[in-house]
């Protein structure tokens, strides 16, 4: 039972991976026998976890990316429909909902960010809604969609994109790029470098000042780099852990599952909303810090 349980868990945590296997790679079947030796580098679907990891960087998690893009499109299409029908008269149900979201995000942005920037508010709306939708997939019972796709011939299917660190890193690194871009744009190269090197320790003595530059650079550099990493890992960690607990609950006998899965799912409603909100708020905070030219 222990073996099958760990297999079950590992199977659930494996992404559907499409990538490049190098020439001379030995493909194994489930029992560890060599079934095929590749005579040249091949793009193919990974049939096991080891194959997926052997693909290295040149691989795509088809399931994560597919669900992420699909959910993003759901968000954009719904909001686009509402935006097209938007009227300043009496709003309908959909418009009401969309307006509530937009006003909520707009309020959050205005409270934190006081400059003028046309990107931050739509960026925040996209982050909040998209991350929320991706997190929401966590509430779909863990075996529904993987089983369905198994019947359609897909060996692996991980339906919660935010439990894939690539997805969260992809977003947080984009935010990081925006932080760098706006820092350079607002403060200039000199201002940005000065912020990295002349704080928090500074001195009136020029020699001492130069001496303190490496120390400052180390501290500020770490705090700068920590932003995208913490942003990505916080979301990933919360959702991965939540998903793992759902998988563990799914190992229980069928009659007992609901006693744990229902409370955890209810609690998880809070977590997924909160994590989407935190990702959005931190993005706003980081970008508003990038705009502050206080030094």
């Amino acid at each position: 039972m222990a073996g099958s349980a760990s297999e079950y868990i590992q199977h659930h945590l494996q992404n559907l991976t499409y990538g490049k296997l190098p020439a001379g790679y030995e493909r194994l079947d489930a029992n560890g026998n060599v079934v095929d030796v590749l005579d040249q580098a091949t793009w193919t679907m990974a049939t096991s976890a080891s194959e997926a990891s052997d693909m290295g960087f040149w691989a795509l998690h088809v399931d994560s990316l597919g669900w992420a893009v699909g959910l993003g499109l759901v968000f954009l299409i719904v909001f686009r429909i509402a935006a097209k029908r938007a009227t300043s008269g009496q709003p309908g149900g959909l418009q009401n909902f969309v307006e509530v979201m937009v006003e909520f995000v707009d309020q959050s942005v205005k409270e934190t960010f006081h400059g003028k920037n046309k990107v931050i508010a739509p960026l925040s709306l996209t982050i909040f809604c998209w991350v929320f939708l991706m997190n929401l997939m966590d509430l779909v019972p863990v075996d529904f969609l993987p089983q369905l796709f198994h019947l359609m011939g897909f060996q692996y299917m991980k339906v919660v994109p935010t439990t894939d660190v690539n997805v969260t890193l992809g977003m947080s690194l984009s935010v990081f790029a925006l932080i760098i871009y706006y820092s350079l744009k607002v403060k200039g190269l000199g201002g940005f470098l000065g912020e990295l090197t002349l704080h928090p320790f500074s001195s009136d003595n020029l020699a001492l000042k130069v001496l303190l530059i490496p120390v400052n650079l180390l501290l500020e550099g770490v705090s700068l780099l920590a932003k995208p990493i913490s942003l990505a890992l916080r979301l990933f960690g919360n959702l991965y852990a939540g998903e793992l607990i759902f998988i563990l609950i799914a190992l229980l006998p069928l009659w007992a599952q609901w006693t744990l899965s229902v409370p955890w799912a209810i609690f998880h409603i809070l977590i997924i909303t909160l994590q989407a909100f935190i990702f959005m708020m931190l993005t706003i905070v980081y970008l508003s810090m990038a705009h502050e030219d206080s030094h």
Binding site: L60, F79, T126, N166
Partner: peptide, 22 residues
């Protein structure tokens, strides 16, 4: 937990979605 092209794909999708939303 493999870091791979998915990250870049996600970043591209993110960029496109944000631009569309904006």
């Amino acid at each position: 937990m493999n870091i791979n092209l998915t990250m870049i794909g996600q970043a591209i999708a993110f960029f496109i979605f944000v631009v569309f939303c904006m």
